[in-house]
């Protein structure tokens, strides 16, 4: 009798496990189909934007050859990489400095500054772009529609996104600082020699987020570069977006797919590699309820 019961329990468990696995697998496939479609379409030999079959009728590598040798994609890729590296460096440094100052040092203007920054963050970031555009025109008269402008746009406001890093610094025990201070360390030394070496997760998180941002941004780059005919200044997102416009899509759709694969693979790999830090960052920052 006892045996029977455990047996039926086991059976129920196996069924539950099977159902869960089937559901998860189905969902997983559903989730990957669009990305899979993107990949197979990049090998499609038939021209045109629309195909009636999921898989290409004829397979080819020609789209990739075209991408690298007949379009400006490599230039766009290098542009984006340059912008991403520089703005990532500036953003990371700014964020660390601001969050450390707000987390660890008590000064008179601290609370008011944090409040003002909170309020600034509630305005849609894009709202100020018309004025930023003017400002860039004044500051860089001949180069305001350039990569330099993009770097400024991506990194100048970095101070506003200090929250996650500050949340991290807040959890580093203060006793560490106090011990160092007893040994005669200054605030600067504590920052460099004690806090920064402990902050690897948050540094990697900030680098990851700010490096990926320029690859994914369309709104700011399209605004800064609006009306620019010299396509050699584009970033990947802007250039690739243009390929899908009505006049270009018939010619460029499969090239777009190939480009998308080339852009997505390194970013995805980077993300997967550093996923742990990303998860720590978002969960630490968002749910300190």
């Amino acid at each position: 009798m006892d045996k029977k019961k455990t047996g039926s329990l086991k059976a129920a468990r196996t069924t539950a496990s099977a159902v869960t696995h089937v559901v998860l697998t189905a969902l997983g496939i559903l989730w990957l189909i669009p990305l899979f479609y993107l990949i197979v379409q990049s090998f499609r030999a038939e021209p045109g934007a629309w195909s009636s079959t999921f898989f290409p009728k004829t397979w080819t590598l020609d789209n990739y050859r075209r991408l690298f040798f007949e379009t400006q994609f490599v230039q766009w890729y290098l542009n984006t990489l340059l912008v991403a590296v520089i703005s990532c460096a500036i953003t990371t440094i700014f964020v660390l400095m601001v969050s450390y100052a707000f987390s660890r040092i008590r000064f008179k203007a601290r609370k008011p500054m944090m409040n003002v920054m909170l309020i600034l963050g509630m305005f849609p970031g894009f709202m100020s772009m018309t004025a930023v555009y003017f400002l860039l025109k004044i500051l860089l008269p001949n180069h305001f529609q350039s990569l330099a402008s993009l770097i400024i746009v991506y990194s100048a406001g970095a101070a506003l996104s200090y929250y996650v890093a500050k949340g991290f610094f807040d959890t580093v025990p203060k006793t560490l600082d106090e011990a160092a201070r007893l040994d005669g360390a200054t605030n600067a030394q504590i920052f460099w020699k004690i806090i920064l070496p402990l902050s690897k997760p948050i540094i990697i998180y900030t680098i990851l987020i700010s490096f990926i941002a320029p690859w994914c941004d369309y709104i700011f780059v399209s605004f800064i570069m609006s009306g620019v005919n010299d396509t050699s200044m584009y970033t990947v997102s802007l250039g690739m977006y243009k390929w899908l416009e009505r006049e270009m899509i018939q010619q460029y759709f499969t090239t777009f797919c190939a480009a998308a694969v080339v852009v997505a693979v390194p970013i995805t790999a980077l993300f997967m590699w550093l996923q742990r830090y990303y998860v720590e960052g978002i969960t630490g920052g968002s749910v300190k309820g």
Binding site: L27, G28, W31, L32, L35, L38, I212, W215, C216, Y218, S237, M240, Y241, A260, V263, A264, I267, T268, F271, M272, Q275
Partner: peptide, 12 residues
């Protein structure tokens, strides 16, 4: 598998 869709740049 699921995280792959976050990792791929949104505009793609």
């Amino acid at each position: 598998v699921f995280v792959a869709t976050i990792a791929v740049p949104q505009f793609v």
